Computed example of a mutant assay.
Amino acid sequence: MGLERKPFQGVFNIIRFNWHFYVIAGAVLIVLFVINSFVPVFLQSIIIWLGFLILISITVSVLTSFYVYDYSDLYKLYWLSDLNDKKVLNINAGFDETSAIIKRIFPKSDLTICDFYNPDKHTEISIERARKAYPYYENTISVDSSMLPFENATFSRVITILSAHEIRKKDERILFFKELNRITELNGHIYVTEHLRDLNNFVAYNIGFLHFYSKINWLKVFEKSDLYLVREIKTTPFISTFVLKKNGNTY
């Protein structure tokens, strides 16, 4: 079953899968409002400004999520080359928003779909909620991120969209990208789409940007996996797609 995107689906899912953060923020605002009447006057201004900053931060993150996931061209996948008549792997971390779109845009692609989510290693509560809310895309294969069940040079295009950062351990990420290297044809491409731990995402998501990795971090992982960066595409000011090729070695 495919996941067809609906209006406001992106921002709704962000709130739905991460509702605990919004509950905590709301509780803090209520506490600040209550104690404001019991503190000295000089502290009241500080509390009001603190509450205002929290409210602004929540509003900015929600509006940014709407822009990225609902308003922008992110899910139109303009940055992908023509996938028709090519062997393609789309690999996710337990929540697949793109396979149905890929198949609709490129109906002649030979698409394989994998899910590397392992609840013992990938412990984000948001993924667990997403998996309960949405079914697998049909014929999805569950895989180990460090040992993909494919022969060398199987695919000409490999795609991982907003999923690779869920591999929190650096050594596991390197093994994962070594596996992507191994299963990709010599002249094939690997597309890695991610938020970055940068100024734009800090402004948008505050400390939530720590869930992402910096460009330097990604480049080090790619280098250790014997992959090199062909180009970086900014889908929005908050998201980058890295287009990678292999240096020729296999693992």
Rank of each mutant, 00 (worst) to 15 (best):
Y75P: 00
V31W: 06
G208E: 06
K87P: 03
E166S: 14
Y205H: 12
F21G: 15
N206G: 15
T241I: 10
S81E: 15
F222D: 01
A100V: 07
F106N: 06
E151T: 10
N90I: 08
K169N: 09
I190K: 12
E179K: 09
V221M: 04
S81W: 07
L50F: 11
I233Y: 15
Y78H: 14
G2A: 11
Y22K: 10
V60C: 13
T123P: 01
S225I: 01
L227C: 05
L111Q: 02
I233K: 13
I47G: 04
D144R: 11
P135A: 11
I105N: 03
V28H: 03
I48E: 12
N181F: 09
I58W: 01
I239S: 00
D110G: 03
S145Q: 14
V143Q: 00
A100R: 05
V192K: 13
V31E: 01
Y69W: 08
I174E: 03
E138A: 06
E166W: 08
K6Y: 11
V203A: 02
F66L: 09
L53Q: 08
V68K: 07
S72A: 05
A93Y: 00
Q44K: 15
D198H: 07
W49R: 11
K76P: 02
F242H: 11
D120I: 04
I125D: 14
E124D: 14
T236R: 07
M147L: 15
A93T: 00
S45A: 13
I167W: 04
Y251T: 13
C114Y: 00
K170W: 04
L244E: 03
E179L: 08
P237E: 08
A27N: 05
G248E: 09
F209T: 05
L83N: 03
L29F: 03
R231Y: 10
I46V: 15
I15D: 09
I35Q: 10
L32Y: 07
H211G: 06
C114W: 00
T184M: 12
L83T: 00
L53T: 01
